[in-house]
Amino acid sequence: MTRNDIAPRLARGGKSIYGAPLGILMLEARFPRIAGDMGNGETWPFPVLFRVVRGASPERVVLNGAAGLLPDFVDAARDLVDLGADAITTNCGFLTLFQAELAAAVRVPVATSSLLQVPWVQAMLPPGQRVGVVTVSKSSLTPAHLDAIGVPRDIPVEGTEDGREFFRVLIRAEAQDMDVALAEQDILDAGRRLVARHPDIGAIVLECTNMPPYAAALRDELGLPVYDIYSMITWFHAGLRPRRF
């Protein structure tokens, strides 16, 4: 058999890394990323690419509006795309502020926040029900964050600022270790306050990408559907690599 008799099987090139179409922009932090956390590689049922944006601490992004960090996020996103990412996401829901700019800069699909799910979930609820949000910092979630992705400004929101563990470790960086039981209690307390104040809530969206480990417990506690960054990114990835039947 000659070379001309062999049917070509062309492998496409142009990337440095293959088989991991999703790139995740990470804040710079040292708290424990337990199973279910977006920054734990074992959370995902598919390979991902991580890129830490140096200087982008949770406190700077959440409490200070990510001031001055857009160029750093753009550079990091472009680096992930150059490596092989076909789409970009981030590990902080407050980065909705950069949704339009990142999508324009990298020209691949970008999903900056779990809050992008709010309009979808609202469309699925019966009349008279609405979506509620549990966030790491209610006082920091401004109209600008909501407007950037089309979330209504009057959406019910509850935060974890007054909790004993979650906020102080993740945002204030007062410790590198975390009491997971106390962190879970902070999420449950916020969820209970939210539905007590707004009994018309029919589903919850968790803003913070560190909250998926507690989503099942919150669902059990409230008896309501709970959506988070895990639910959104598994959907996002399904479009990048559709299942073959």
Results as ranks from 00 to 15, higher is better:
residue 30 R to K: 14
residue 168 R to Q: 14
residue 139 S to A: 15
residue 35 A to W: 12
residue 43 T to F: 02
residue 131 V to A: 07
residue 50 F to A: 07
residue 12 R to V: 15
residue 72 D to E: 11
residue 126 P to L: 10
residue 179 D to Q: 07
residue 24 I to P: 10
residue 169 V to M: 09
residue 30 R to A: 08
residue 64 N to H: 14
residue 171 I to N: 14
residue 231 S to G: 15
residue 180 V to Q: 12
residue 91 N to H: 11
residue 165 E to Y: 04
residue 208 C to D: 13
residue 135 T to K: 02
residue 182 L to K: 08
residue 162 D to I: 01
residue 205 V to P: 13
residue 164 R to Q: 10
residue 178 M to I: 07
residue 163 G to I: 07
residue 6 I to Q: 05
residue 65 G to D: 03
residue 175 A to I: 04
residue 220 D to Q: 13
residue 127 P to M: 06
residue 99 Q to V: 04
residue 51 R to E: 14
residue 3 R to N: 03
residue 37 D to K: 05
residue 239 G to Q: 07
residue 113 S to E: 08
residue 203 A to E: 10
residue 166 F to R: 06
residue 209 T to M: 05
residue 174 E to Q: 14
residue 87 A to G: 12
residue 29 A to M: 13
residue 74 V to L: 06
residue 219 R to P: 00
residue 214 Y to M: 04
residue 213 P to I: 09
residue 172 R to C: 14
residue 243 R to W: 02
residue 175 A to E: 11
residue 65 G to Y: 03
residue 207 E to N: 09
residue 115 L to N: 09
residue 215 A to D: 00
residue 189 D to T: 15
residue 84 G to V: 12
residue 242 P to K: 01
residue 185 Q to S: 06
residue 52 V to D: 01
residue 106 V to D: 11
residue 38 M to L: 15
residue 129 Q to T: 14
residue 136 V to F: 09
residue 200 D to T: 12
residue 86 D to S: 11
residue 56 A to D: 01
residue 46 F to S: 06
residue 190 A to H: 08
residue 11 A to R: 15
residue 164 R to E: 14
